[in-house]
Design a protein around this nucleic acid. Sequence first.
DNA 1: CCATATTTCTAATTGAGATTAGAATAAATA
DNA 2: TATTTATTCTAATCTCAATTAGAAATATGG
Lengths: 235, 235
Amino acid sequence: MVALGPIRSRSLIILKLRYRYEMLNDPVSLEAATKTLSTSRKSVRKREAIIRAAIEIINNKSYALATMSEIAAALDLRNATLYYYYPNKRALAYACHRHSLERFERLLHEASASNGTGLEKLELFIRSMLVESDRGGPLLYFGDYSYLESKERKVLDFWAVRLSDALEQLLKDGIADGSIVECETGLVVNLLLGMLIWLGKWVPSVEGLTVERLMNAIKSFSLLGIQSRDFPSSL
Amino acid sequence: MVALGPIRSRSLIILKLRYRYEMLNDPVSLEAATKTLSTSRKSVRKREAIIRAAIEIINNKSYALATMSEIAAALDLRNATLYYYYPNKRALAYACHRHSLERFERLLHEASASNGTGLEKLELFIRSMLVESDRGGPLLYFGDYSYLESKERKVLDFWAVRLSDALEQLLKDGIADGSIVECETGLVVNLLLGMLIWLGKWVPSVEGLTVERLMNAIKSFSLLGIQSRDFPSSL
DNA sequence: CCATATTTCTAATTGAGATTAGAATAAATA
DNA sequence: TATTTATTCTAATCTCAATTAGAAATATGG
């Protein structure tokens, strides 16, 4: 039972972990890193589970108030165990942001590639966002990465701008094909994102809310417009 | 130059400050506290300046990442000085929330009391929000008070619910008078709030944005509806 | 079953930032 | 001017959560 000194070199373990962390944190070599870890599916699963738990908690309490212990506890682990998967809290949060942006990007890409007017594509995107959030947990908001390192911030900012632009393009398509009214698309994209991001805060607290009801509310509020058709000249 | 021991009792000073803090933190006796301090307008000014700086910084970086030192620095003070005005960071943040809710309530009340359709009142409220934020800084979002004490949380929650209800009433008025389309007002209020709350995050970064342009974007996005009049049956 | 690699744990350590102690300065008042 | 009162400061201390050290447990492959 009593250990007789370090049996195997800890520094070697650490070195290997560092190597993995680097791979996983560097977008370019992500694929390679995954390949390296492909033997242990369990590890990948765990990493995903950690990210999901972290997003849930960080989204509720903000980065700084979410403790490693709390995230670990949500998975029945001790906080030290998290450091086996991620080198530090910041890196974990960074992974969460990237995870969210990936989901976001996938949905947006699918909607863009679909057939239909700009307005219909927009609706499809919003609907799939709702469905996805319903299952895979909240999409962490993107913006305010103040706690990240400048290099990480740049990656995320670049990414977020690209997504904003793609979303704006949907609006422009809609204006071009006549399905969306003329407007400052740059501003409207931000309004839309605000509405969507905020969903994560209040939707979970509404009992028995369905995607359909939520979608209808969004249509009433924005897509179809809140103004009654009987008062077309009001405002 | 050299002090010869405590000249006056510190405990007395502390006691007095504690008394003030209690007065200022207890909504009921706020008036009395103000009266007590009325002799020093300077003090009241300073307190307001602190709150404004704190809202600005907390809004940007979240409660936990905003440091007392940073807030103090924004006012050319050392962090210890803040403790002369507020007993601790939490109490300062609580004061910020209350300050925001008060502003919010005032604007909402004015809009409700105005003449016009529900839709027009709603527009008035949003417009005054924009103008106010433009001057007095961002309205701190209300929700997520996780770091506050349960007693404080209850006060704010109660308050926030009251404001939500009042806002929802505007929608219901609009539906009743025909200016707003039938919808689940409870959900739509949250969508609206999300959009408004998020303004604080992105508006400051848009160069040369005017209230008028922003208001037009909001109309396009939600009030007037994003859908083109030429495609009334789309979606 | 043995040897190795992987995963998790307990028990420190560390560090950053909130908070406090108490003096120094500035303002007000008599 | 002298004395009190209000405000701000410097220099600790204290706390809490991130992080690390290193051992224990568990899985895996020959």
